[in-house]
Design a protein around this nucleic acid. Structure first.
Lengths: 115, 115, 115, 115
DNA sequence: TTTT
DNA sequence: TTTT
């Protein structure tokens, strides 16, 4: 089991690319707020990287922009890679299975998913 | 582990009551949409009963109304009771731990929780 | 968004049936414990109905038995029906998307899902 | 909303420390398996860093060891820091709110949480 | 690098 | 109707 549910705002427009074999993939960052315990009204923000594949990647790129509020479901993935000078790094990202659009007029609550 | 995450709209204003010993409790129903598989554009709706306690009950009663979009986190509880003519019945409800307000101006994304 | 995550024990063996058009469906109940607040060591139990479809229904029926510990992911569904004497009733059940087997030797942590 | 649910095994014994003002904090890594799509029987593993605070930190340190299967609930946090040579780095970790012990005899399904 |  |  590896399931994460987030609600937050995009910090930038999603970036849509295609793999060499034509699979759509898009990335964006989500600003997710939370209250600071015992500090009334204060909030802190986590900036969480999201990755979407296939039709969901295209829907996100077409319908969501910087500043929009979305709900995201997916799984947390830790990817390892090496920098050019040979250091090992790890990047955490949420692989989205569902993205739900939450503000803006009658589009409210529209949703997109894979599979 | 018993955790549920929902996004939906209230079908009526929340009802606020107090137990004999003065504990606030409020109830509302959430309309939660989902796509019907293989039926493009079709949606079905689950109507899910939510119960909130204490300060969260009061916040919900004060700030959320029928039609508003909210995110709810909590646990699924199955309560048993007997009808007046002695039949056993069971009711399912989500005991909310967090409610997040998702539409309406700069209130966007305000949140309330217990504990 | 409608996602639930549960860990609990089966209260009986799963029941496997097939719809008239040959789709596998299986049902079981999960006993899900939780601590009673402020009552050290006390626990209460929710008995939650699970329904699985297709290959997941068959895997569950084949590999899980009464008493086994499992993790379940899915969505909460409220189904309405009428009794023979015309009363309206509602039943809550979790439509499983994943079931993970959690005890018993090297089977530990085996998982099965749909789609 | 920021909620994650995981089931996995500890890759090492948890490490228990105390902050200068005496707050318990413990760290461990969880190996979380998932099936590789379209590759029958193949599995990949994410290694996810967990952090627990207060009484939960102490319970985890006392009762859980390397290799044990646990369920973890919490939130995903992205922490920024600077390396000694002034590079900015980010680390992702799950701040646990509940840890449930899932294997080993009658301890099965014991749980510990904060708040 | 960050959103309202 | 309930599991350990």
């Amino acid at each position: 089991m590896n399931h994460i549910a987030l609600i937050g705002r995009l910090t930038r427009d999603p970036e849509l690319r295609y793999t060499p074999n034509g699979v759509a993939v898009s990335n964006f960052d989500l600003a997710v707020d939370r209250p600071v315990p015992n500090q009334q009204g204060e909030r802190e923000t986590d900036f969480i990287r999201i990755i979407a594949w296939n039709k969901l990647a295209e829907n996100v790129a077409n319908y969501v922009k910087k500043g929009r509020l979305v709900g995201v479901e997916g799984r947390l993935q830790i990817r390892s890679y090496e920098t050019q000078d040979g250091q090992k790094r790890r990047v955490a990202e949420v692989v989205a299975s569902q993205v739900q659009f939450l503000d803006r007029g009658r589009d409210d609550s529209a949703a997109a998913g894979n599979g």
